[in-house]
Design a protein around this nucleic acid. Sequence first.
RNA 1: GCCGGGGUAGCUCAGCUUGGUAGAGCGCGGGGCUGUUAACCCCGUGGUCGUGGGUUCAAGUCCCACCCCCGGCGCCA
Length: 447
Amino acid sequence: MNDYPKRGRVVAIEFTEIGKLFSSDVRDGTAVSIRGWVYRIRKLKDKVFFLLRDSSGVIQCVVDKNEEGIWEKVEPLTIESSVTVKGVLKYDKRAPGGREVHVKDIMVVHYAEPFPITEDAVRSESEYLLDVRHLWIRSSYMTSILKIRHTVFEAIHEYFRKNGFYEVQAPMFITAAVEGGATLFQVDYFGRKGVYLTQSSQFYLEALIYALEKVYTIAPSFRAEKSRSRRHLSEFWHAEAEVAWYSLKDILRIEEELVAYIIKKVVDEREKELKTLGRNVDILIKESELPFYRITYDEALEILKRKGFEVEWGDDFGADEERALVSEFDKPVFVIGFPEACKAFYHRNDPERPEVTLSADLLAPEGYGEIIGGGERIYDKDELVKKIKRFGLDPKDYEWYIDLRRYGSVPHSGFGLGVDRLVMWICGLKHIRDAIPFPRDIRRVYP
RNA sequence: GCCGGGGUAGCUCAGCUUGGUAGAGCGCGGGGCUGUUAACCCCGUGGUCGUGGGUUCAAGUCCCACCCCCGGCGCCA
């Protein structure tokens, strides 16, 4: 059936990336070898047109019935069959993209079974695409997102490394909560109770600053929130940083520089992919100009009251409030100084105004929501223990974390960036599930 | 967890109000077509109508229970 050799070595032929066939120095009439997957086929009486896709692009291939030994192989081709093609590149206005390959030889590596994803499923943005996610990731839509995501991760590493941060790794198996017990995934750790998947690497980063001062990590975080929103995953990628000696003000500068750096790199290197996704690049550029806006929690309350919301001091913002607030700004906005009860216990209270914390959330524009949470951490042992108790938690669960405040404790600050949410915003996606190849949420752990 | 929507062919959906032998498009198979662009034209293929029970001469359609999925809220990054 297939004429790819089952035994022996793959013949060493140089293959050209399909994307490169569209560059200006590839002349009409050039002999080319390409390989990839059949993307579309149109069979006529005397000709077969098929679009061939590889990771770099798509080009039309043409087979004439007169081509002996080729026609018989091409006629039974199916969508997603894998082939290698030798042919001649021709400029032709009739071809998509203005160029095509006239096939002189073809080897079918695998005749694909009928591909289950149809145009109907694509256009309806069907749930089915999540069931066959292992196949749907081949689409130009998912491929564009994955390339942008790749560049986002690259930019994060670049920014931190250029700015003197050490990359570190924290464990995924942990024994204590960061936020609260209800959102932990319990695991069977050799039959031992009280072992969970991590919700955040923050506490470990706080330990590591005493060795390396400026640290960051990119790692998954796991949260068992029974959330049904378009902005939540139960397994998400978290870029976290922690810096010794830094104040809230210092860490906000890092946060906005990081976000702006990532967007600039994506705009510079992934314009084609952004356009495939229909993302307005000019808006993105405008949205990433520094500095970002900074408002206090109190100012945010004023804005909301002016817009007719019934909010009282001490309330956290709901989705409606957050949307209304963000709509006032054309760039990301930091909301600084949340009341103590709105934030986790480890946030340091403002010594000059103890009812608020030295914390800040970064809200993305266009309703993409909170992408960063961070601030100063409590570095005094007694202050920390008191606050743990005030929050109804047991200091015994946080022994090693409290221990950090016993040996040369210093002021420090840090933050956590939701990478998938950032990708969602940059790509302009409707759902966070599309920001990651294999999403995990309350309902889905397959494929 | 709460509120709303949904489950019918491999995929996308109509049919349900007003019960009477299950439909379309896409896909797939066959045929046609002198360059196709989500190709097009003709023919064919394809179903425990989410599960269980009830009403009825008769249930995809009406009633009850349950399961699963989607969206919004809450929660967060």
